[in-house]
Write a protein that binds this DNA or RNA. Sequence first.
DNA 1: AAGTATATACGAATCCTTTCGTAAATGCAA
DNA 2: TTGCATTTACGAAAGGATTCGTATATACTT
Lengths: 132, 132
Amino acid sequence: MAQNLPQPTEAEMEILQVLWVQGPTSVRTVHEALSDRREVGYTTTLKLMQIMADKGLLRRDTTQRVHIYEAVVSEADTQHQFLSRFVDTIFRGSASQLVMQALGNHQASPTELEKIKDLIERLERDSQGPTK
Amino acid sequence: MAQNLPQPTEAEMEILQVLWVQGPTSVRTVHEALSDRREVGYTTTLKLMQIMADKGLLRRDTTQRVHIYEAVVSEADTQHQFLSRFVDTIFRGSASQLVMQALGNHQASPTELEKIKDLIERLERDSQGPTK
DNA sequence: AAGTATATACGAATCCTTTCGTAAATGCAA
DNA sequence: TTGCATTTACGAAAGGATTCGTATATACTT
C-alpha cells in the first residue's frame, strides 16, 4: 500500500506547506500563496506541482478544467521523516542535544514550555513502567 | 570580521564532522574516515575540501607538502544555523513543535530528560526575571 | 464565430552539488 | 638519477532541482 515516497525538496516543501493549510486546491491558489513570500512564475509553480504529482507526493483531480491538487503525505509524517535525517546528519544522532539547542535558541512561550515538561514527565513515567 | 559563510552542503557536513572530531588534519585522514562510512574516491574528498576552503568553510596550511585543513566554523554555530532554517522550513517556525516531535520519536535517556527539564525550569525562571 | 483570458503540457536552460579522470608536482628509495 | 608512491591541481561529466518560454487547450464574452 503506502510505499516509499521521495523526500520532498525545499521548493516542494513550500508547496506542501500551502496545501496543508489550504487543503486541496488549484495551482493558482498555491501560486498566489507562494508569491506572497517570494517572486516566482506561475508556470514554475505549475511544473513543480506536476512533478510532485508524478513522484506521488501529490494527488490530483483532472476531471475539471482547473485541476485540484492534494497532498498525499501528512505534515506530521513529513516532519518525522525530516527530523530523523536531520538529527543524524546535523546532531550526530543526539536528539536531546537538538532539543537543548532548540529550546535555548528559540522562543517558546510559558504554555509551550509547560506542555514540553508534561511530555517529559509522561516519558519518564512510561520508561519506569513495563516496556512490554 | 566573521562574515556570511555559505551553508554547508550534505557532503560538506560529513567532512566537517570528521574535522570537528579529529581537529586539523590532512585530506588523507579525512578521506579514510569517510571511507569507513561509504565508498568514495580520494580525489572526490580532496576536491570537496578544496571547494570548502574556497568558500571559506575550511582554512588550510599549505606550507608543507601535505596540506592541513581545519574547520573555520564551529559545530555549535553550524547546528544553530541549520536549526533555524530547519524550524522555519519544516516546522513553520514552531520550535516547541519540533521539540515535542523529537522527544516523542527518539530515545532520550533519563539523565538527558532530566537535563532538559532543568533547562526548561531555568528558562521559566529567566522569563519571569528582568529581561534586561 | 472571433477574441480574450486562463489553464495545462512540454522541453529546455540554468544552476548547484557531487564525482572522478588525468596531469603535474613533490618526496623518497634504490 | 631513475623510478615509485603520494599529493595537489584542474577540468569536466553526471545528476538533480529549479525556472521559465512557448505551445496548446479550454472556457467565456461579445
